[in-house]
Design a protein around this nucleic acid. Structure first.
Lengths: 213, 213, 213, 213
DNA sequence: CATGAATGAGTATTCATTCAT
DNA sequence: GATGAATGAATACTCATTCAT
């Protein structure tokens, strides 16, 4: 016994191997261009086994999205410092995000590049994760508003917009931070904090930019 | 009068019809899932004619990207007010952008969702357009910095990062603004100005956010 | 006035241009792989004109075969010296054949490589030409037999076989003589005369090779 | 018992069935005109299976050529009598060749009619086989020359030309022998021996045919 | 548990051929 | 007489998916 592909592994392990192979393949080739043959071969198993465990290409892709989304959210959550001011929490969360996406480019590509462009039902899956991130940022902004004892006119809808913009900018930075020549996770986080936090501060103090100026 | 399949049109007209159909199909189905059959049918012509004029799926997609990218850049340029302060120029440009993407969701989807995720040589095509937008924003920030007589430490690399983040946030907002329940073009532009401009102002005054706080 | 493609030429001239282009294209690409587009472009005319004059790809190919077959037979006939002994006639005919095929490799390829392999009705066309050459050789052998006052047992069927073999060897030599590194027309003819004529002489003298020896 | 489509055969068996069908189809329709659909249907399998095992039309054709070429060379080698005079060896080899081509007209057509006219890389494949046959004949001529203690001026290049002509004539005779109304294998071999061997004998005795005569 | 064998349904692409002008 | 515009029908090739063992 010894060399060669080890056989007869518990199902859970095999499934993770398949998901690993699928994430890599989907990320690099795209959902449509990735073939089940490629994935099975990369996973080191036969094609029927992939079907036995994951049922179909669609379910396989969905499973990839779910696993990667949960891992990413978990990474961000784990990175956030507790019991510190809101800005500090955002800062640590962003650093965690950029560090994670840089370390898992394939997973990030599946979530941000592939899943979002393949229509239903995949967009729904990523939307759930994105909503979680946006909601987290909204909470931070809300907390910051309370900390700063800010103007009560600072409406929910406005917060939602800001949170959305911040997450959008962060996702875009994540792509950049993962590419060669791009910034480090720390630089990206710093840029975003500088970019966003002062604006938020002004808003909370009711100092809006208006076109009339 | 009108209806029915009109036949025997000059080449230039037919080509535009084909590009219209292709943009719509690529936007809604994705590059790989869109079939040349679908496109030809939607364009109201036979498949060989599509090949006669556009040569291949790859060239057809590239032609779509180029046309849409040029149209978008042209729309933004046309919307920018001249001879006004930099913030006002950015404001008008953003409004133009969001108005255009909302009015041309398929074109925007081709550029932002599809082209960027289909690997070379398509990413190169959109990168050109994106670089144009980023460069435009960089110029505005530079102009604003001059207007504000700001700190000279405000370095180029920092400007590049901010411009990149702003464009990324704008692209993300454009997706949102184009979806049902999303903000209007004006709202999206206002959100982004509030989000971004105050932060920029602080930076120019050398008031950075730093983690030590 | 002036350069460019001259227009409005008499039909006969245009037809020859088309056949020239067709022979070249069929020879180099093969019957199936040669497209009417290629041929029309090489001929410098529009595709509908090719159809107007030659009706179909099949008829066009047939016309090529006929023209080239007649030209080849004419070249051989013209090369044969009259009023000389049979061997001398064969010698001059072979030199003419090899000189012609070397000078017209495309025409020869159409006849020998392409037409023979494309099934009916093309094989029939070349068979006619081949029969003419075989018959010519049979006559020469017959004449030689008479000159040599040979054995009357020298039967027709045997003559036919010899003529067939000689023509086959000649065709094979023609391919070789036309290729780089191959023999000159004169060398090829000499080889074939040495190879064939002595054998014929023995046969005429009833000195057959028999397995029992 | 027997009939009906038998399913689930081992790969090696199926591959041979596919090659059988491919040889027949290529021989009768030509390389370009033979469609993979035709071949799959004749083989009694689906098209994807043909691709799974043989990869592409080009590789399938190449596999046909190789198989048929090896079979033909093996048939000739098996037919040649050992330890007999050179003429007797040639005689037995020719009988073997004609018997084999007559029994396998499709394989012979693939080699002689189709492969040679479809350009690279197929011509290279048949050239290998042809070179083997020519080389075999050269050895026989050389052996005969030694047996006959012939003139040393009998140069290599001349031998090469003669061998080439003999093989060319044989190939041509093989076509004839395989067609209705053509000679039997034995007749064809006899004709060729009579045609060729006496000529060779004269040459070895330095009795060349020369034009001056 | 695991796989070799097999396929129905598509996909991009090409070609011979024909009108309307 | 000559052509730009247009297509029906085919062709090589691929892929997600399923049995029988």
């Amino acid at each position: 016994m010894g060399g060669g592909k080890s056989k007869r592994m518990p199902r859970a392990v095999r499934e993770q191997q398949m998901l690993d192979a699928a994430v890599q393949t989907f990320a690099r080739r795209g959902y449509r261009a990735a073939s089940m043959d490629d994935i099975a071969e990369l996973a080191g198993v036969s094609k029927p086994l992939v079907y036995l465990y994951l049922n179909s290409k669609e379910e396989l892709f969905t499973a990839c999205i779910r696993r990667e989304a949960q891992a990413l959210v978990a990474a961000v959550r784990a990175a956030v410092e507790r019991d510190v001011p809101a800005d500090r929490q955002l800062w640590s969360g962003l650093r965690g995000l950029f560090a994670y996406t840089a370390a898992n480019p394939d997973g990030w590509a599946v979530l941000h590049s592939q899943a979002r462009t393949q229509g239903e039902p995949f967009v729904r899956e990523v939307a759930v994760m994105r909503a979680e991130l946006v909601s987290f940022v909204e909470q931070l902004i809300g907390a910051a508003a309370k900390e700063a004892d800010c103007d009560p006119e600072f409406a929910d809808r406005e917060v939602a917009g800001l949170a959305y913009a911040l997450v959008g900018a962060a996702e875009s930075m994540a792509d950049w931070a993962g590419s060669p020549g791009g910034p480090s996770a720390k630089e990206a986080a710093a840029t975003l904090m500088n970019f966003a936090w002062a604006g938020l501060g002004n808003l909370m103090r009711d100092q809006r930019w208006t076109p009339s100026t």
